[in-house]
């Protein structure tokens, strides 16, 4: 540093500025979403879980079990793809909690929390960016399905409607993991507990098999499992049917998740440590 010159530059940079008007909560949320998306640019590996896992699961289930489960792998694909889509996106929601926890433990959020901005915007921004990830994951699954022989009778409209429904549900479910991200001490713990919660919810569902052959108690759980309801809605939408009852149920569950977990998350966020 050429001291005198550098110091003058610094003083100039500090003195000559006027305060811009306060930004809206929407603007600040978008700024945070921009930040989260930039991270994908630098760490593209983080997209592995939305690409690698669905590909692996689809191939494995289709070719290992497909024939046995549905008579032929082609038939099984029609059944499996909407389910894999749900599974992939639902698992991606965990990432939201993990990255939030990392931000907090690194102190990055301390600065944001001491700024005069709309309180929830860092969280809302992160969730908006995650919606982009979910969309990406959905597109990958659909493309893979189409390559393997998935032929949705609902056409483009049905597929898009199905993806929208998954996005709504996942956005709502993310609040559960942001809450865990705030409660738990380490990112590892967030990952561990979230997975422990998600595994039974996704596997004890109708994603991979029709529950008809399951024991009664399990079938009862599978049938009321929101993941099953979502999967069923998706199959119907992509198959060209609209079952409003099912869709409304998914929307109700989503609303309940937000109504419970968003305020709790915000409370924890505001009063963190």
């Amino acid at each position: 540093m050429n001291s005198e010159q550098q110091l003058n530059k610094m003083r100039a940079a500090l003195v000559d500025h006027k305060r811009p008007p306060h930004p809206s909560g929407f603007t600040t949320s978008l700024a945070f979403a921009w930040r989260a998306l930039l991270k994908i640019k630098y760490v593209p590996e983080q997209l592995l879980d939305v690409t690698f896992f669905p590909v692996m699961f689809t191939l494995m289930f289709t070719y290992l079990f497909g024939g046995a489960l549905a008579g032929s792998t082609a038939d099984y694909l029609q059944f499996l793809i909407p389910g894999i889509l749900v599974q992939t996106v639902v698992f991606t929601t965990v990432y939201t909690g993990v990255s939030l926890n990392e931000d907090i433990s690194k102190g990055t959020f301390d600065r944001f929390r001491s700024m005069p901005i709309w309180g929830p915007s860092p969280l809302v921004g992160a969730l908006l960016a995650d919606t982009v990830r979910y969309t990406l994951a959905s597109i990958i699954v659909i493309i893979l399905g189409l390559i393997l022989g998935f032929r949705p009778a609902g056409g483009v409209l049905g597929v898009v409607a199905g993806i929208m429904l998954v996005l709504i549900f996942s956005f709502s479910l993310s609040w559960v993991f942001t809450m865990l991200g705030l409660i738990l001490q380490t990112a590892k713990a967030v990952m561990g507990i979230s997975m422990t919660l998600l595994f039974p919810v996704t596997f004890a569902s109708n994603i991979f098999v029709d529950p008809a052959t399951m024991p009664g108690w399990l079938r009862a759980f599978v049938n009321i499992n929101p993941v099953s309801i979502l999967t069923t809605s998706l199959r119907q939408l992509m198959g060209g049917q609209v079952n409003w009852m099912q869709i409304i149920w998914v929307l109700i569950v989503s609303a309940v998740l937000i109504l419970i977990f968003a305020p709790v998350t915000m409370y924890l966020y505001r009063n963190k440590r």
Partner: peptide, 19 residues
């Protein structure tokens, strides 16, 4: 500051948040 972002991006984020 955010370790994953560049210097410019870090400052731009704060500036955006300031309006």
């Amino acid at each position: 500051v955010d370790e994953d972002l560049s210097g410019t991006e870090n400052l731009m984020l704060i500036a955006r948040l300031m309006g």
